[in-house]
Design a protein around this nucleic acid. Structure first.
Lengths: 126, 126
DNA sequence: CAGCATCCGACACGATACTG
DNA sequence: CAGTATCGTGTCGGATGCTG
């Protein structure tokens, strides 16, 4: 197969033999994290903006996921000490570097969405 | 920002206003699905091979996820009517086309894993 | 060997109410 | 506005045992 060794190493790490990356990977590719990343790719956003842009996420989950992503070094939190508080979230350099591969995935879904839904409908029909 | 329109459409779809793609996206990027895709990128595999390669997945989840991925048209199931049964899973053409963007993500994790764990450790220390 | 059925615990997630 | 606290529930996901 001769995959590039970087991929091979990623695969090995993902097999889960107590590797710490596995947890981070699960978190970073979890349901909301990818969508939050997508929302932040276009630039910094405030808490309420993210909540509105995402569609269906609860404030609890949003706060929780954002905290985890800050912890993973993907997202930067910038809180201005004003009243009312004004908190802005943005991608860190690390997060921005992940954005590239991620938008690849998003674009793929954008262009193959029809095939997916058609395949699924065909399967259900058969 | 001027993101390519394909990405914009993907983002719009992902906002979840009753869009059917959202469900498929959640499924395809769910915990095990990405890992199963990764395992299948290197070629067809049998059930037990996948179970062993994945590390930590239960047979129930594997069967369940494989079925969902077959339904989404990402994976092909080839069952030989022998005794004992011999079932091989492989990527469909659609699945293979998703593999590209996906390996991009995997490679990113392969090369930025250290930064992630370091960032997390630094956060926990602070 | 493949994989379905059943049971059950853990926790992901949402709704609501409350605080600085 | 940006969270935190608390509670309730559904789903995720593992362990075990059984079938073709």
């Amino acid at each position: 197969m001769a995959e590039p060794e970087q991929l091979a190493s990623a695969l090995r790490l993902l097999q889960g033999d107590g590797c710490p990356l596995r947890g981070i990977f699960d978190e970073a590719t979890s349901r909301w994290a990818t969508l939050i990343m997508a929302a932040l790719i276009t630039g910094p956003h405030r808490f309420a903006e993210l909540r509105d842009r995402l569609g269906g996420i609860s404030e609890k989950m949003l706060a929780q996921k954002l905290k985890a992503m800050v912890r993973a070094g993907l997202v930067a939190r910038d809180a201005k000490p004003t009243v009312p508080p004004q908190v802005t979230y943005s991608l860190t350099e690390l997060g921005a570097s992940m954005a590239g591969p991620l938008t690849g995935l998003f674009r793929w879904f954008g262009s193959h969405g029809d095939e997916l839904t058609r395949a699924q409908r065909a399967y259900d029909a058969g």
